[in-house]
Structure formats: structure tokens, C-alpha cells
Amino acid sequence: MNQPLAYVHPEAKIAQNVVIEPFASIHKNVEIGEGTWIGPNAVIMEGARIGKNCKIFPGAVVSSVPQDLKFAGEVTTTHIGDNTVIRECVTVSRGTIDKMKTVIGKNCLIMAYAHVAHDCIVGDNCIVGNAVQMAGHVEVGDHAIISAATLVHQFAKVGTHAMVSGGSLILKDVPPFVKAAREPLAYAGINSVGLRRRGFTSEQINEVQQIYRILFISGLNNSQALDKIELELSPSKERDEVVNFIRNSGRGIIRSYFSKDAN
């Protein structure tokens, strides 16, 4: 299972067929699922819950103590879903008293040098690019892509199927299904290519386009636009996801590149 030069705490729970390479370090109160590979010099710290068939590359540190001065030593966890890949030198902090856990979902790819801070919730099938720096309490929806060298403000949210361009600064919430780009970060169309790849029909994509035409191009404020969307468009999963996301946005959403207040 593990090489003689790896350190595995006797209280760690390691499933069958886990490979732990030389100089990796597995601390106590750790659980690792079947088929997972832990690379050389990776450090899996207290509270880690790593699923099946994951790959943790050299230099990664999973479930480190939060970089939060309010952290008082509470017992918290970090959850990594099945089939997720954590590349070189990624750091993932465990939770604080806020959510008590940090979560990265199933089938995710977290590229080299990214940081996922305490109490972040990253959904399934997400891609987080090289050197993305994610502050505490961030939420990322399923199938979202955050491109390289992006900075994400604490408590910000990125919606499902959204795609954020590289080198961005996310200060406000990024709604579902959109592409976000430019500086300051703004709506740059819907993520139509990604939606097609994931099996969305032409009718669904057209509906999403209509939603964002009303929201960003009609000249209405957000409340008026949401009322118009609910009045004119039939209920659907896509419509309701956009409406609920915006209504529950704590930081407010990005604006359109074409709107007057985007610059």
C-alpha cells in the first residue's frame, strides 16, 4: 500500500488499493478512499476526507489549518469527492466554525498552485485553473470553470456552468451559465459552447440567452428584470436557477460589459 519512506499516522483510515508514495505524510483523523494515489511529498493533514480514485500530486497540502485569525482550533474537516485531481502545490484549508468544512466535489480538477481557502464549497465537475486564489467562504457551482490566475473575493459565488476568463478579479457574484471576462469583470455572453458539450438542447440555450437579454440588455434594474423574466418566461430549471441565484446574491452580481455601470 505505502512505501516505507512515507509517514502514515496509525489512526489514519486508509482503504484498500491506496498508493502512498515516498515522503508523503498522512496525519491522524484522515480517511482516504479506495484507489486513491497520494504523490511524493504530498501532505494530508487532520480532518481530510478524500474519496475514491483521487489523485493528489507532489507538494499538495490538503486540510491545513485555516489562514483565519478567528480560527480557535475547532475540529473541522476537508472533503474531496471521488475522482478529483489535486495537482502540484495546491493548498486546501479545512473549515472553520462557519461551515465546519471545506468541500471540493466529485470529478474536479484543481490545477497547480491553486488555493482553496476555509469554508469554500466547490461543486462537482469543476475546473480551477493554475494559481487561482480562492478566499474563504466562496461557493462554486457544478461544472463551473475558473481560469488561471483568477482571484476570488471572500463570500463570492460562481454559478453553475459559468466560465471565468484567466487573470480575472471576482468581486461580485457570477451568475449561472455565463461567460465572464474583461476588467472590471463583466458579463460577456452565455457559455453556449460549454452548455452544448454538456447536453443542453438548442431550446434550453435559447431560453438562457433570452433570460440574459432581459437582465443585461433591456435597461431594467435587477428587480425589474427578474419580475419580467418570471412574467414572460415559463418556469424551468434554468430560469429558476438564474432567478434564485440573483435574488440570493449577497455581494450583488457582475454587470454586462455593454451596460453603463460596468466601467
Rank of each mutant, 00 (worst) to 15 (best):
G95D: 05
V140L: 02
K228R: 08
L109P: 03
G167F: 04
S64T: 15
A149Q: 07
A24I: 12
Q224F: 05
I38E: 02
Q224M: 02
V8H: 01
G105Q: 02
Q224K: 05
Y7G: 10
P184E: 09
Q133W: 06
E31Q: 13
I86N: 02
T84F: 01
N191Q: 11
A12V: 14
M111G: 00
C120E: 01
G47L: 08
I38S: 02
N83C: 06
V19K: 12
V193Y: 14
G105C: 03
R196Y: 14
F177A: 02
V90F: 00
P66F: 10
F57P: 00
L5V: 13
V138G: 06
G129E: 00
N263F: 15
V178I: 06
G141Y: 03
R198Q: 08
H153C: 03
D124L: 05
A181Y: 15
I214K: 10
R198N: 08
S234K: 14
K237R: 13
T91V: 07
I146G: 00
S223T: 14
E238L: 13
I217W: 15
R196E: 15
A180L: 10
G194A: 07
Q133I: 08
K70R: 11
I205N: 08
R49Q: 07
V158A: 04
A60M: 01
G59Y: 00
G47P: 10
S168T: 12
G166I: 04
A148G: 05
I121N: 03
R94A: 10
V128G: 00
T201N: 03
F245Q: 05
G159Q: 05
D142M: 12
S192P: 07
H9G: 06
A112C: 01
L109Q: 02
D68E: 07
G194K: 06
E139K: 11
A225S: 06
I145C: 10
S236Y: 02
E183Y: 09
M134N: 04
T78N: 05
L231Y: 13
V103G: 04
R197Q: 11
I254R: 09
K228C: 09
M163N: 08
T160S: 15
N29K: 09
I80K: 07
V92E: 07
V193H: 13
G167D: 03
A114N: 01
N263R: 15
F216W: 11
R251C: 07
D142W: 08
I50H: 10
L215E: 10
G129A: 00
R182I: 14
G129H: 00
M1F: 09
Q224L: 03
L226K: 07
V30P: 05
C120V: 01
M163L: 10
N244L: 10
N206K: 14
C126Y: 01
L226N: 05
V30Q: 04
V128R: 00
E207F: 13
N222L: 14
G123Q: 03
I190N: 03
Y212T: 01
G95K: 03
R198M: 07
N221K: 04
C108N: 06
I121R: 03
A156P: 04
V75D: 11
D98I: 08
F71L: 06
V103I: 09
A262E: 12
R197N: 12
A181W: 14
S234D: 15
